[in-house]
Amino acid sequence: MTKAAIEFKDVDYTANGIHILKRITGFFPKGKITTLVGPSGAGKSSLFKLCNGLQTANSGQIYINNKLIEQYAPTVLRRTVGIALQEATMINGSVEKNLALPLTLKGEKLHKELAIELLKVVGLKESYMSRNTQELSGGQRQKLSIARTLVNKPQVLLLDEITSYLTVYPSRTSKN
């Protein structure tokens, strides 16, 4: 049994008549940072969405922690495999409201200490908490998007083109 966080076996994915992923086989090891590199349209985002359960492969198998993806309830899978999407979409409102979103969806509240800690992890100041997300720059939104994904305490974290708006990527701070 491999120590894989995510494992792919012959994964094929087609969307809107375009064959995006062809027979993908391999794995992302546990406890490591793996970077996927490829040109625009190569299928990196699609692969992430398959892992998070936002899309389903046409054929092949995907295992998360050695368990077949279909064996997870969709909501459990998405909390286990967190994804910070490329668009860094925000809901209308403050940074705090966005940060609390994963817990709001579960009917829980976000403690202020945790919120401050998460903002710190991604390099955002505590004073940002009450700001409207419309006031944030693209880079700040992406940082907030990562912090928001971390609220669910995912076992696997997928960051989709997450540095595209960051002028200088603070690699250590973000990855930790």
């Binding site: 998070n52 936002l54 969709p74 909501t75 459990v76 998405r78 909390r79 967190g82 994804i83 999407l85 668009e87 979409t89 809901i91 979103l101 994963p102 969806l105 579960k106 928001r148 994904t149 669910n152």
Partner: peptide, 16 residues
């Protein structure tokens, strides 16, 4: 569409 996908990706239900 992006907001719908965001909420789903964070573990929300279709209704949410």
């Amino acid at each position: 569409q992006n907001q719908t996908e965001l909420i789903l990706s964070l573990g929300g239900t279709p209704k949410q």
